[in-house]
Design a protein around this nucleic acid. Sequence first.
DNA 1: AGTTATCTGTGAAAAATTTCACAGATAATT
DNA 2: AATTATCTGTGAAATTTTTCACAGATAACT
Lengths: 210, 210
Amino acid sequence: MNRKKLSEASHARMIRLYINLNRMDEDWRQTVISSAELGELIGTSGENIRKDLNTLGCRASGRGYRIAGLAASLREALHLDTRVMNAGLAGLDSWGALLIRNPESFPGIRIVAAFDNSQNRLERTESAISLYPSYEIREVFEQEKIEIGILASESGDPERIMNRMIDGGIRGLVNLTGCQLNVPPEIWYRQADLTAPFLSIVSRINGVEK
Amino acid sequence: MNRKKLSEASHARMIRLYINLNRMDEDWRQTVISSAELGELIGTSGENIRKDLNTLGCRASGRGYRIAGLAASLREALHLDTRVMNAGLAGLDSWGALLIRNPESFPGIRIVAAFDNSQNRLERTESAISLYPSYEIREVFEQEKIEIGILASESGDPERIMNRMIDGGIRGLVNLTGCQLNVPPEIWYRQADLTAPFLSIVSRINGVEK
DNA sequence: AGTTATCTGTGAAAAATTTCACAGATAATT
DNA sequence: AATTATCTGTGAAATTTTTCACAGATAACT
């Protein structure tokens, strides 16, 4: 029932709220929770929470928001209540090697195929999910109805890998590398590069004054 | 020689620019590069780049910025030119297991010790770096002069792990988990949780209209 | 040496986001 | 049932960030 489009900031907050609500789903001593408390849960203000939840159509009842249905309401409002989505992963050298070992690391997503440029690595890697050479990305993505691409390696030509995924029909792309991609606007895109936050912290620490 | 403090947005951009400049350090056909081109390199506008670089004290020369010294200038302006920093990692179940296998995954940082609550896991894990039970965090962080804490696991009590790290003298903390931490303001903090971007994309895809 | 095309540096406007402030609503209390 | 304390919902102000617009500077060209 969401009324208008959430801003990026808003959306990010609600995703974080959803994650953190689920983390502690069980032991609430209260039956109702205030926006300020929800804010603390994700490091933001009560006002933000109230506006966000209102935009999603969640209304409070006097003393706060009912905890019981809140996670479920969010789940629905954020459209996280639908089917499990198939994902395909390219790059088995670093993060990729870990992710394929646990193809359901992320709720709502199942990694169903992984790809690498190196035939050698494909042969050496043992995995419960199917492995293919990178040039088969388009074909396999189509066959397996893969909607999310995961770019896990900088080696090779990331832009070319991306384009194969796009040809294969993805609607979203998560880029775990530091390299810039020119992503067409119809593809939902997130960059989640770990190098950046690490460098950022080093830079700030050395910058002395805070 | 940076003149005033960079805003968070600015700082994040410059870190990303630095990373991407280094990725292609070699083969420039040009000797000078325009702010618009630099912007393309990290997906932002020329104006942003110009303002950011100016704030850092980097000046252009007519037709653009000299490529040759740019990465080095950034490195200095962002204080990334100092010593390698020691980091300590808590949690060997998921990302942690991978990170300790390559303790220098991030430039400027060396993971020198890792910790876990489970004695069993400490014994089973093979590693080139030293492993300790979590209750020794404070002591080891002090001894090894560890300045950056890495929280890699949700299990256990993340807030308690963090507090041990703070008692041990960290100045920065990278949180790879989805859980919220109440970080004191004198600690530089970044959350780099992979679950959030994945859920965010799933949510946006299912939200249909873009 | 003068002309020209390009790109910078930077105020000002616009857009996005957060914080403030408070009337109104709800549940607890008496 | 009336009172009270608390918390919401939401405009308005403040802050942050991005985009616009353009005078001025620089290098390339003739």
